[in-house]
């Protein structure tokens, strides 16, 4: 049909609207397999854009589109190879002959707790998630992590009772759940890691003294007058105030710079 009339093809070139990908003129397309079905998509797209290009519409399984919300974990494999690869659909660029499927949600166990009541001991985490002790150290969780988190490392740390280490090792986790999807011990690693970080923040991590001091100052009304002044300003005055604000020059050594206005320090 296309062969019959070149001009028709040119006239019906897709124009992007909303999330629809813009196909650059002369863009090369490559075949990919979404849930087993073949689609030809522009080679420069991410998996998520390619799926939208192919006609899929995301009601779930898409979120920030910036690689941080964990809504679009995707498993893929290259034709002819057994090896499974893992990535975020919004961050991973398509490759020719990629077989892929998204796993937007995994029904992993998520314990209910009140962080104020459980206390800061590792045993609280153990009691909420006893399945932690079913880990066999196969390391499939770490291999599956699109954020390169040492999942086995933090699970091992938690088994040993080291909440601090687990909180630090799991810091980059975006809760996508791919670890749990691969776990033969049926462990919800990402939920346990989140609990570990919460317990660490609530009970173990030292309080920031300067923050406590500032909160105290705010509560004692030190900044009320300033806030009232700002609230009373017109939009123009506020803009002027913002534009003329004092700024610490870039790359200043710590403590070397002081603003002229020192009333609120």
């Amino acid at each position: 049909m296309c062969d019959a009339d070149n001009t028709t093809t040119k006239k019906t070139i897709r124009v992007a609207t909303g999330d629809r990908a813009i196909l650059p003129e002369g863009a090369k397309t490559i075949p990919i397999y979404i849930m087993g079905k073949k689609y030809d998509v522009p080679e420069t797209l991410t998996i998520m854009k390619a799926m939208e290009f192919a006609g899929f519409k995301f009601l779930r399984g898409a979120g920030c589109r910036g690689g941080i919300c964990g809504a679009c974990p995707t498993v893929y494999r290259m034709a002819g190879d057994y090896k499974l690869h893992y990535g975020l659909a919004c961050q991973t660029v398509v490759e020719a002959n990629m077989y892929l499927a998204q796993i937007p949600f995994f029904p992993a166990n998520r314990a209910e707790y009140n962080i104020e009541e459980i206390g800061g001991a590792a045993e609280a985490i153990h009691a909420l998630y006893p399945e932690l002790f079913r880990c066999v150290a196969c390391n499939l969780c770490t291999k599956a992590c699109p954020m390169d988190v040492d999942v086995l490392g933090y699970i091992s740390a938690l088994k040993q009772g080291n909440i601090k280490k687990a909180a630090q090792l799991s810091f980059d986790c975006i809760q996508c759940g791919l670890c749990a999807s691969r776990c033969m011990g049926e462990i919800p690693q990402y939920h346990i890691a989140q609990l570990a970080r919460r317990v660490y923040g609530r009970y173990i991590q030292p309080r920031a003294e300067h923050l406590a001091k500032r909160v105290e100052e705010i509560e004692s009304g030190k900044y009320d007058a300033m806030l009232q002044d700002l609230s009373a300003m017109s939009k123009e005055e506020l803009e002027k105030c913002y534009v003329e604000r004092e700024r610490e020059p870039d790359m200043t050594a710590p403590g070397a710079w002081q603003p002229k206005e020192t009333r609120y320090l």
Binding site: C135, V136, A137, C138, N139, L152, G153, I155, S156, K159, M184
Partner: peptide
């Protein structure tokens, strides 16, 4: 970077996955 040893040795002839932890 050590992990749990598995505490008990797996005794079935075809089960290698439970040897992975100690071997690691």
């Amino acid at each position: 970077r050590w992990n749990c040893c598995g505490a008990v040795f797996s005794l079935t002839a075809d089960d290698l996955i439970h040897q992975v932890g100690p071997v690691r």
